[in-house]
Design a protein around this nucleic acid. Structure first.
Length: 213
DNA sequence: GGCCAGGACACCA
DNA sequence: TGGTGTCATGGC
């Protein structure tokens, strides 16, 4: 909790995905896989212009046209297939209703999402937290790097092990998890802890003290 | 011109 | 289960 307070004081609230519709958040979760958010924004803008930011419209688009619209997000062929896999799942299981999908119990919907080809643990948890407002902590490459670097997790820890560290230490609060994950990403990008051998950076003394405590 | 970005999966041993 | 190759654009 102390880490969160330091990060929040330093960077301020991040406000990730505060007002976007849940479908747009889900699309963003898939498109941002191993990709900078800047490139994802262009792809989403293309989808919006094409009127494809609804599940039915996007599914009707077909793989080739969809891939072309999301080209800027990289891996555009695989991501087009992944979006279509999700849309097929949403159609077959919930009749295109995101509200129905996002009102399921957490363990159930998480397991279902993980069975969709192209949705792994991080993407599933991003969807659940940022689109569904479920209290679940998202672990990403930045989180892993920061924890390992400060000796808070052993190297090679699994996704679930890292997730447990946060879940056990924090109250189950979706808003807290939302901000915390966004702040860790912000920190990772800050060129201080994002790099494996960056020493003497501005945040180092503050964080080292807090993290060891 | 090289490196990296808010991963996941297939394949292999 | 753990390591490696693959997918690919765009910013710095």
């Amino acid at each position: 909790m102390k880490i969160y307070e330091v990060l929040c004081a330093h960077f301020g609230p991040q406000g990730w995905w505060p007002a976007d519709g849940s479908f747009e958040v889900i699309v963003g979760s898939i498109l941002t896989q191993n990709t900078s958010w800047r490139n994802v924004e262009k792809a989403i803008a293309n989808l919006r212009t094409a009127g494809a930011l609804s599940p039915k419209r996007m599914l009707e688009l077909g793989e080739d046209d969809l891939a072309e619209l999301i080209r800027s997000s990289g891996y555009y062929r695989v991501k087009a297939r992944r979006l279509l896999h999700f849309l097929s799942f949403l159609k077959d299981r919930y009749g295109f209703s995101l509200d129905a999908m996002l009102s399921q119990p957490l363990p159930k919907i998480r397991a279902e999402l993980l069975r969709v080809k192209g949705i792994g643990p991080e993407t599933a948890d991003s969807i659940l937290l940022y689109a569904g407002n479920y209290p679940i902590f998202v672990v990403d490459a930045y989180t892993k790097r920061i924890l390992e670097r400060h000796g808070l997790a052993r190297k090679g820890s699994s996704y679930e092990e890292l997730q447990d560290l946060f879940v056990r230490a924090l109250p189950r609060d979706a808003h807290l998890f939302n901000e915390y994950h966004a702040l860790l990403v912000r920190l990772g990008k800050s060129r201080c802890l994002g790099r494996p051998r960056c020493r003497g950076c501005v945040l180092e003394p503050t964080l080292s003290g807090v993290l060891k405590g």
